[in-house]
């Protein structure tokens, strides 16, 4: 195991930020923490990068304890905080040189590692970091986090606030880095990015709900999922919620995702029910669930079990 965390708890005053977090990450894995804002992702990353002490529990990175071996960890981990934390009044090159030197290395020494990323911002190397666009800032931050050739890369919401094209590029870069032998843990609030990870942990309210490969998580979705649409979407949601057989109804873009209590829904019955409610142009299709469907399903299951 490259990273191993056991029963981590962390409270901020009376707010529970992390509750009984345990997980393992293999060497050379691209591991994602998926969850909404406030799920505890940043707190967890700060504990792993030795910036914060957990109240309870332990964690090791490559066998180094996050409390006792913090010096070794700081030398071998690259961390990219969620907020852009480089010096805005230093140029691209100055930032990179600065972080290289305080890690006791030079840009040239590890240029191989950052080349693919750095060439994209090298034309602007004299520009102040504060004057870069969001996507370029993020590439610079990644270069700075990589400059000392870390064994583990910790990226806290690297794609938040970045456009779709840059996001796609960024994930490609991460996969390349993984192929070069770097273990990566990354957090994101975007469910669609889960499928780009080797394995993901779904987080909610300081707890991990599930850890698995994205394919498995989707495969384990317990019901058949249907996309439903009609000309009157507003009343459609209401009507579906009142359908006796319904298990869940959620709005996804232009469709409502619907599951029934049984594994498979009685599509004909549903259609008749909706026609009886004066819906027109009814479309009901069986679809493959996405991570988001699984996430919502897990969330409702968890809150139901909490209530019991």
């Amino acid at each position: 195991m490259f990273i191993s965390a056991k029963n981590i708890f962390k409270n901020y005053g009376s707010t529970q930020a992390l509750s009984d977090i345990s997980f393992e990450v293999n060497k050379n894995e691209l591991f994602g923490f998926i969850g909404p804002d406030g799920a505890g992702k940043t707190t967890l990353f700060r504990i792993l990068t030795t910036l914060l002490l957990a109240d309870k529990g332990s964690a090791t990175i490559n066998g180094w304890d996050v409390v006792n071996d913090f010096k070794t960890i700081r030398n071998n981990v690259g961390y990219m905080p969620g907020r852009f934390s480089l010096y805005q009044d230093l140029s691209v090159e100055e930032n990179l040189t600065f972080f290289a030197t305080i890690f006791g290395t030079t840009i040239e020494e590890n240029y191989d590692l950052i080349r693919d990323i750095y060439v994209q911002i090298e034309p602007f190397k004299k520009r102040l970091a504060g004057k870069l666009s969001g996507g370029m800032k993020q590439k610079l931050a990644l270069s700075c986090a990589l400059i000392h050739a870390p064994e583990l890369l910790v990226l806290d919401e690297p794609t938040t606030g970045v456009d779709a094209v840059s996001r796609k590029e960024f994930w490609e870069m991460l996969r390349n880095l993984r192929d070069k032998g770097i273990t990566i843990i990354v957090s994101t609030p975007y469910m669609d990015e889960a499928s780009l990870c080797d394995r993901v942990a779904l987080m909610q309210n300081g707890k991990i709900m599930q850890i698995d490969t994205p394919q498995h998580i989707v495969g384990e979705f317990p019901r058949k999922l249907y996309a439903v649409r009609s000309s009157n979407m507003y009343s459609l949601k209401d009507d579906l919620l009142h359908f006796p057989e319904q298990h869940s109804v959620h709005l996804f873009g232009q469709y409502l995702h619907f599951t029934a209590r049984e594994r498979e829904a009685d599509i004909l019955g549903l259609r008749h029910y909706l026609e009886g409610k004066n819906h027109q142009n009814i479309i009901i299709e069986a679809i493959e669930p996405g991570i988001e469907d699984c996430f919502i399903e897990l969330m409702t299951e968890n809150s139901a079990s909490n209530e019991n």
């Binding site: 700081r74 010096y87 700075c144």
Partner: peptide, 13 residues
């Protein structure tokens, strides 16, 4: 305030 200390603190400085 700017958060740059976060990046400094993870270095072996």
């Amino acid at each position: 305030e700017l958060g740059t200390i976060e990046q400094i603190n993870v270095t072996p400085i």
